[in-house]
Amino acid sequence: MTELDRRAILGMSAALTGAAALGSTAALATSASPSATAVPAGAIALPARMIEPPRSISEAAQASLRKGAMVPYSPSPPADDVAGWKASIAAHEAGMLKMMNGGDLVLPGFKVEDRIMGGVPVYVVTPPASAPNQGKPHMNIHGGGWTSLGGKLARVFAQVAAQAYGGIVYAVDYRRPPDHPYPAPLDDCLAVYRELVRLHAPESILLAGGSAGSNLAAAMLHKARDTGLPRPGCLFLDTPIVDLRCIGDSLVTNQYLDTLLKVWSKDANVAVYARGADVESPYLSPLLGDLGKGFPPTYLRTGTRDLFLSDTVRFHAALRKAGVEADLYVGEAMPHGGFGSRTPEDEDARQDTLRWLARHWRVAT
């Protein structure tokens, strides 16, 4: 497979992940207008303004931001509208599957197996010899706001993860809301991890997740520790969501600047996932747990326009405070999940991740 082919597949993945992105630049101008009412003490009323992509990034990255800004705002259904959520998820995933030829894609040279581990469907992907980190176990948890990107989509994204970072990928197809809210997704991830540490030395395992998948990965480490399971060798959290109280600064300051998510509200995906459970539990908000036990060396990645920039930098700081080796990558003007994997900035981020993995993801001796 050529480098162009590889980037095309990665780009398709990122573009499809953001197919239901919310918001627009027009909405930014409206929402940022100073209110005619009194400003609360300490608050800052910003004037309406237009924010162009910065010239500090490549033309390809600028084009990605402009394209994302044109996606119209589409609010989620009310949290208690189960039928509305199911319809929205089905429509989103149907469009993605159509673009992926039904989701039956298998990349050239890849081996994909459908397994059941701990009672949970898992896609086991073995990449060709050209992929990095040959033979190392890689447990990967997909994102999608806990509600989307399962089934055949997870099967495709598992191949993308194997292509980008290597290893033998064990991708968890966890149960999802609205039919299966917390703790079902977390329990499924833990069940797979329990089986994985029986197959592989724990210190050789990379645990990785993106977005809501990062939330599940970090929360699962709290639960794994509490149930007596060993920690993995290293952890990779890509644009993680780690505080479901939704109080981070960038959730406000990066509204609509994040061209993938646009807006994030605890009244939407968080409410559908948590379904009334205490969001201050470390099993829902891993930032709020004891990070000094159970967490291995951790690599965190975000961008200056990511809605979850604050979650990521706060988690990085909390890990270091707890004595955990943690490294942080912040991409200039990068929104949630990156620019679509077709830009020099996306490749720089991937290469930095690979350099970190080369130091921390080791074969068990």
Results as ranks from 00 to 15, higher is better:
L105G: 06
L105T: 15
L105S: 11
V106W: 14
V106Q: 14
L107C: 06
P108Y: 00
P108N: 05
G109F: 06
G109R: 08
F110I: 05
V112N: 08
V112C: 13
V112L: 15
V112G: 11
E113N: 14
E113D: 15
D114T: 13
D114W: 04
D114A: 14
D114H: 13
R115G: 03
R115C: 12
R115P: 10
M117L: 08
M117R: 02
M117Y: 00
G118H: 08
G119D: 07
G119N: 09
G119Q: 06
G119P: 01
P121G: 12
P121S: 12
V122L: 04
Y123N: 08
Y123Q: 10
Y123C: 03
V124H: 01
V124I: 10
V125G: 04
V125W: 01
V125M: 00
T126N: 14
T126D: 14
T126V: 13
T126E: 14
P127S: 11
P127T: 05
P128S: 09
A129L: 07
A129Y: 02
S130V: 09
S130P: 05
S130F: 01
A131H: 10
A131P: 07
P132N: 13
P132W: 09
P132I: 04
P132Y: 12
Q134S: 13
Q134K: 12
Q134Y: 07
Q134P: 07
Q134V: 10
G135L: 08
G135V: 03
G135Y: 11
K136H: 11
K136W: 03
K136V: 01
P137K: 06
P137Y: 03
M139V: 03
M139S: 04
M139W: 01
N140L: 09
N140T: 08
I141E: 10
I141K: 04
